[in-house]
Amino acid sequence: MSYMDKIQILQQKQLLVKNLLESPFKLEQLTNENIGLSNIIHDKNLYRPQLALTGYIGLFNHKQIQIFGHTECFYLRDMPLEQRIKAFKNIAQFPIPCIILTNNLVLDKELIDIANDSGIAVFKTSYNTTKTQFLLSEFLDDQFSPQAVVHGSFVDVYGIGILFVGRSGIGKSEIALDLIERGHRLVADDVVMLTKKRESLIMGTGTSLVKHFMEIRGLGIIDIRQMFGVRSIRYQKRLEIIVELLEWNRDDDYTRIGLDEEATNIMGVEISTVKLPIFPGKNITVIAEVIAINYLLRTYGYNAAKIFSDNLAVQIQQNKEPGSAFADQRHISYFQADNE
């Protein structure tokens, strides 16, 4: 069984309106304090309630965050107060999570009062509508993304995110430490949190408690950031390769050529996987660097296993005449006189 089978998918935590206030946007609350802050945001999409304000509530999606841009605000502004209240009530009658006004737009006191009474938070932001929608979507996308926790060490090696997994005590942290010593950067040790950002993208980070602390057996807890400086760490990294450390077993089958790539499925994303047998005297750190460089080469279009295999096929073609096999095998045709 692979260690990655035990990956723990986290339940989605509930996103509340007040979490928007902790997010990086500068939202200013126009409704009274505590009004609507505990409303749950069920949907990551945003809604422009133009048609709903006119009274057509047929397809109105009240579970989404409502964005009021110039269109909505000017539509409301250009009608008498009585009608304005009626139009606003068209949407305020629903349990919507919150309303966000863009471009620093404001609503009349009467409308804010209705929102207060209905328990709907109203915010304003200085960003324009397009920017607001972009930033909010990015934030909501992240909040609604599937997440998982995995036991391993996550290191950036030459810009490639390598996650080391394997049974406890096999030496994941020691390999990470060795890589840091050689100038690579630690993302997280022991507890790695993975988030699916897009269809084929998994990002990894540590936990807020552990940060870049690390346990080395026989030594205790050390702080990588303090010891090796800020250039030895990073907060987040795309997961690109999983290296599974295994005790060497004579009967197991390990990759010898590398023509067929193995992959592990994590939350629906295929991540390239290397199964690495370890034994005393084997330098995993150097192999990890080679794995990263090889991955880079493949990304840039050079596949060593494929080139070698093609060369062999050519050689076999040329060797059709019996007896010619070994005579031409020497890499250089003659040794030069310097004998160096």
Binding site: K6, Q8, I9, L10, Q11, V149, H151, R167, S168, G169, D189, D190, V191, T207, L209, V210, F213, M214, E215, I221
Partner: peptide, 29 residues
Amino acid sequence: ASKFNSEVTLIKGDFAINAKSIIGVMTLA
């Protein structure tokens, strides 16, 4: 936990960690 050959997992809520990892156990807080 480390005395045994078995895999030991500790679960709090939906957060599961390896009980042989001190950092992991402390993460549960």
